[in-house]
Design a binder for these strands. Structure first.
Lengths: 352, 352
DNA sequence: GAGTGGGGTCAATACGTATTGGCACCATCT
DNA sequence: AGATGGTGCCAATACGTATTGACCCCACTC
C-alpha cells in the first residue's frame, strides 16, 4: 500500500459549465453526451457547448467510471515488451486506434514479477478498465490472471496458458517462414541452411515448418538441409553461421530473426566472404532501423507488430459480441539486397 | 468522443467487507488505510483484514480519486519512445519503482500527433494523474502542454521548451563522451575520428565536447582530428566509416551511438580491415542485445535509461517540495573488446 | 374551454470511498 | 456520585457524473 498520493489542482466541473450556461448540470450532461433521446432546445445546446469550450471542460473519468461503470482505459499487460526493441509497436498501434476515441492505455510490465503480474493486474482492475490486452514480444502461452473474470480479454502475440481469451491475435509465422525461405529457393539456391531461434519456441517451430515446406516445394528433402538452433541473439547468429558455413558451405542462410542475420553477416565478413555474392542471407522481423540500415539491406519477413496492435485496438472499440476468436495477420516479405543468385561454383569442400 | 465503453463486472466494495466483518463501512476504511489516529480495537481490525482478504477486496481507485482527489496513476507522455529500441527502459524503470506502491502508468505516445499531444495530455488530466512524466528517446526540448498547470511535472531525457518543470533528469552526455573517447586516447591512439550523430543534436554536441576535452587531455589539438556527422543510423555509420577510413586511415573511431558503431564495423569488414586489430571502435548507449552481442563486443558508454526511469519514479513517490530541480545521471563506460592498442605501423597513407 | 401530449428543463439520487462529528460505553479522578 | 476523558464505533455527507421521474408550459384536439 502506498502512504500518500499527490493531489491535482481544482478542475472545471459540469456544474461550473451549467452555471455559466445558465442551465442545470443534467442538461449539460445531456448535451455533452449527445443524448438525442432527451430533448434539448437548439439554443440551449449551443450555449452549453460554448460554455464548455470557454471553460475548457474535461470530463472527470473517475466520476464517470464510478457512476456508470464505463471505463475509458485499456489495461495492457506486457512481459518485457516495453523494454525490447521495436515490439513496443504493438502498444503503439493499440494507442493509435484507441486514443482518438478518448481512451488511454495503462501499461504494466510483468517482466520481473515472480507472481506473473497478478498484483499488477489487480491494480489495473482497481483502476477500472474497459478491456485487458496481453501483449508479448514473442508468441507464447501466457499466464492469465484469474482476477480478470468478467473482463474483456485480448491476447496479442500470445495466448492464455489457462483460462479464457475473447480474442487471440497472432502473426502468420508459418507463412512468413515459408515466404522467407522461398525467397532463396526461388532464386535457385539448393544448399540452404536454417539457423533457427530457440528450438522449442512457437515462432521457431512455425518458421521451420514454413522453411521445410518451401524446401519441398523446391523439390528438396528438408532432411538433407542443415538445421541449427540458437537464441535469437546476434552472437548466436555469428556462432552458428561461422560453424555452418565453414562445415557445409551453404549458399544461403535463412535466419531466425534479423539479429541473428546480422550476426551471420558479421561472421561471413570474418570468414572473408561477401553477402550476397558468396552467401545470401534472409532475416525475420524487419526490425526497424536495422533491417533497412544494414549493408546490404536485409531481405526479411516483416513481423506485423503495429498492425497487430491496431487490430487489437479495433477490437477494444467494437462490441464484444461480434469479435472473432482468432485473428491471423500476414508477415509481408520485404525484399532488399541480401539475397542474390547462388554463386556459379562451390567455394570450398563440405568437409576437410 | 467515444460512443460506448465496456462495463466491468460487479466488484467487491468496502460495504461488502464491512457486512462480512460485522462492522460499518467507515471502520473498514480506517483499518485498510491504516489510520492509526483513529482508534480501532485489535480484534475488530483483525476481522476486517480477514474479511477483506477472503473477499479479495480491491479498492476502487475511481471512488478514491473522486472523493479525495488522490490519484494512483502516473501519466507518461512519450514521443516515439515506446516504438524505439531500448529507450522503453525509461518507462520500465519508472514502473519498477512506482508499481510496488500501487501506482499504474498511463502511457501516451505523441509521435504522430500534430498537436504535440495536447489532446492526449487532456485525456490524461481527465483520468486524474498524480504526476506527469515526459520522456524522450534523445535529449531535447519538448513542448509542455499548458493544461498541466498545477500538476507535478517531471522531464526525463528532455526539458520544457516553454513553461515549467518540477524536475529535469538528464544523462551526463558530456562525461560519457569524454570517457568513451578517453578509452582510446588512453591506449595511445592519436589518429582518432569522431563520427557523431546529428550535428545540432544536444547529445551529439555534448559528446563532442567530451571527445574534444579528452583529446586535449591527451595532448592533442581537437582541430587536428577528423569530425564527421551522420544520423545515428547503422547506414550512416557505414558510410562515414567507409569515407573516413579510406581517406584518413585513423586507428580508432569514436561513434555517435552503438548503431553507428555497428555500421562502422561492417564498413571495416568490407574494407578488409579487422576490429580491433586494425581499427578500434567505441560506441555510445550500450544498447541491450546489441553492444554485448556484436563481435567483437562493443566498448561503449552506457546510457542510464533504466536508472533515469527509476529516479523519476522515486520523485513521483516523494514529496514535491524536496525534489531537486535537476538530476544528472552518470554514463558508465562499458569496456569490451572493440578497443585495442593502436597498430604498430600506419597501414596506409593519409592521402593518395 | 377542458383535456391531452410532448417539448424542455430540473430536482433528486446512486456509484464507492474518505472524513467529520457525534454517540455510547467504560475507567478514572475529584 | 458526578464530572472528565478516552476508546471504539457509526451515521451522515461530499466528491462529479449519469439517469430517473417528475414538473411546467405551450400547442393542439374535440
Amino acid at each position: 500500500m502506498a502512504k500518500k498520493a499527490a493531489a491535482g489542482p481544482k478542475r472545471v466541473t459540469m456544474t461550473d459549465v451549467a452555471r455559466r450556461a445558465g442551465v442545470s448540470q443534467p442538461t449539460v450532461s445531456f448535451v455533452l453526451n449527445d443524448r438525442r433521446d432527451v430533448a434539448v432546445a437548439e439554443e440551449t445546446r449551443r450555449r452549453v457547448l460554448e460554455a464548455a469550450a470557454e471553460l475548457e471542460f474535461v470530463p472527470n473519468r473517475a466520476a464517470q467510471l464510478l457512476r456508470s461503470n464505463k471505463s475509458f482505459t485499456v489495461g495492457v499487460v506486457t512481459s518485457g515488451i516495453v523494454s525490447q526493441p521495436y515490439a513496443g509497436l504493438i502498444v503503439l498501434g493499440l494507442q493509435q486506434v484507441v486514443q482518438p476515441a478518448g481512451y488511454v492505455c495503462m501499461v504494466v510490465d510483468t517482466t520481473d514479477d515472480p507472481g506473473q503480474g497478478d498484483d499488477a493486474v489487480a491494480s489495473l482492475v482497481g483502476q477500472g478498465v474497459a478491456a485487458i490486452v496481453y501483449a508479448s514480444l514473442a508468441p507464447k502461452p501466457l499466464h492469465r490472471s484469474p482476477r480478470l473474470d468478467g473482463i474483456r480479454t485480448i491476447f496479442v502475440n500470445c495466448w492464455p496458458e489457462e483460462g479464457h481469451a475473447d480474442t487471440v491475435l497472432l502473426a502468420d509465422e508459418y507463412a512468413g517462414g515459408r515466404a522467407a525461405a522461398a525467397s532463396v529457393f526461388d532464386r535457385g539456391h539448393r544448399e540452404v541452411a536454417f539457423l533457427g531461434g530457440m528450438r522449442n519456441d512457437y515462432a521457431c517451430k512455425e518458421r521451420r515448418r514454413g522453411f521445410d515446406d518451401a524446401a519441398r516445394a523446391a523439390g528438396l528433402r528438408p532432411a538433407d538441409l542443415v538445421h541449427r538452433y540458437g537464441n535469437y541473439q546476434i552472437g548466436s547468429g555469428y556462432d552458428l553461421a561461422t560453424d555452418v558455413v565453414s562445415e557445409h558451405g551453404p549458399t544461403a542462410l535463412v535466419c531466425g530473426n534479423d539479429r541473428m542475420a546480422i550476426g551471420a553477416l558479421l561472421a561471413l565478413h570474418a570468414l572473408g566472404l561477401e553477402c550476397p555474392r558468396d552467401v545470401s542471407i534472409v532475416g525475420f522481423d524487419d526490425q526497424p532501423d536495422v533491417a533497412d540500415q544494414v549493408r546490404p539491406g536485409l531481405t526479411t519477413a516483416a513481423l506485423p507488430h503495429l498492425m497487430l496492435g491496431r487490430r487489437a485496438g479495433e477490437l477494444v472499440l467494437s462490441a464484444p459480441d461480434d469479435a472473432p476468436e482468432r485473428i491471423i495477420v500476414d508477415c509481408e516479405l520485404i525484399e532488399r539486397d541480401s539475397v542474390g543468385d547462388p554463386p556459379r561454383r562451390r567455394r570450398r569442400g563440405t568437409r576437410p
